[in-house]
Design a protein around this nucleic acid. Structure first.
Lengths: 142, 142
DNA sequence: CTACCGGCTAGAGCGCACTCTAAGTCAACC
DNA sequence: GGTTGACTTAGAGTGCGCTCTAGCCGGTAG
C-alpha cells in the first residue's frame, strides 16, 4: 500500500503520515525500489490506536514515549501498561470535569429557555461543588 | 479589585486577563484615576463561565460570539441559548467518543496486565463498532 | 515523446491560545 | 528623594500539531 492509499484508509493526510514518521510516531516505512513508501496493512491498526490516544487528549510527546517503548519491544510491557494506566486516569478525570460542565451548561440553557428570564442570568453563580480549585499560577511573573 | 487580585482569584494570569480583554472576551475594564483596571467582583462569575466553555473545548472564536451577544444584551437570548445548545451536543458527542476510547484503553491495559502476553498485542485490532468512520480529508492536495 | 500523476525531501508557514519583554507610569514606604 | 512593586502599552515570542511549498523523480497512458 502506498502513502496515498494509507491516507485514504486511515483518515490522515499524506502530510501527517510523513510528519508522524519524521518525528518517530510511525516506524520508518519500507520503500519500493524507487524509494516510495510501501506499507503493510498492519500499520492501520497502529494508526487507529494512535487516533484513540489523540482523541483522548494525549500529547504527541507522550505518544512518542509509548511508540519508543513499542519499538524496543519485549521487556517494556510493564512500562507501557503503566503509561496507559496513568493516561486512563487522566481521561477519567477529564470526563468527570466535562460531566460537571454539562450540568452548568444545562442550567444556563434552561435559564434561556424559561419564560422567567432574569436579565442578568449570565451571572448566575456556579454552585460551589462544581468549581475547580484554582491551582497555583504565574509563579514568578518577572 | 485590581488585576493582580483578579488573577489570583480567577486562576488566570494577568497576561491572560489583558489578552482576553484585548480580544473582547472580557469587557473593557473600568479604570481608576491612574489608568489601572478596577474590577467588580461580578467579573469572576463571567470568567468562571468562560472557564467552563474552555474546559469543554469551545474555541475562543466561538466564546467571542457568545460574549458579543451578551454585550448586546436583551434580545439575544434565543441566539445565546441556541449557541449553547449546539455546544452541549458537541460536548455530549465528545464524551461518548471518550467513553469508547476508554474501552479500547481498558482492553489494552488488560492485555499488558495479563500473564498471557501476546508478543504483538499492540496490534490487536479494535472492534469494528468502536471505529470512527474516516471522514473526507485532504480534499484538494494542490 | 510528452504529459500527468503521485510520490520524494527539506524546510517554511499557519492557527491557536497564550506568554513574555521592553519601556514607561504611579503610589506607597523608608 | 529614592527605591520598590504593581500596574500600563504595543508588540514579539512560544509550543503545539500539523499543513503546505518548492523543486525534483519515476511510472504509465495517449
Amino acid at each position: 500500500m502506498k502513502i496515498g492509499e494509507l491516507a485514504r484508509r486511515s483518515g490522515l493526510s499524506t502530510y501527517t503520515i510523513r510528519y508522524y514518521e519524521r518525528i518517530g510516531l510511525l516506524p520508518r516505512a519500507d520503500r519500493d525500489r524507487s524509494g516510495q513508501r510501501d506499507y503493510d496493512a498492519s500499520i492501520l491498526t497502529w494508526i487507529e490506536f494512535l487516533d484513540r490516544l489523540k482523541a483522548t487528549g494525549m500529547p504527541i510527546r507522550e505518544m512518542l514515549r509509548y511508540a519508543a517503548l513499542r519499538e524496543r519491544g519485549a521487556g517494556t510491557e510493564a512500562e507501557r501498561g503503566a503509561l496507559l494506566e496513568r493516561h486512563r486516569e487522566r481521561v477519567r478525570a477529564h470526563m468527570a470535569e466535562l460531566e460537571a460542565c454539562l450540568l452548568v451548561l444545562d442550567t444556563k440553557i434552561a435559564g434561556y429557555a424559561g419564560k422567567e428570564q432574569r436579565k442578568d442570568d449570565h451571572d448566575a453563580p456556579i454552585p460551589e461543588r462544581l468549581r475547580k480549585p484554582a491551582g497555583p499560577r504565574q509563579a514568578g511573573a518577572r
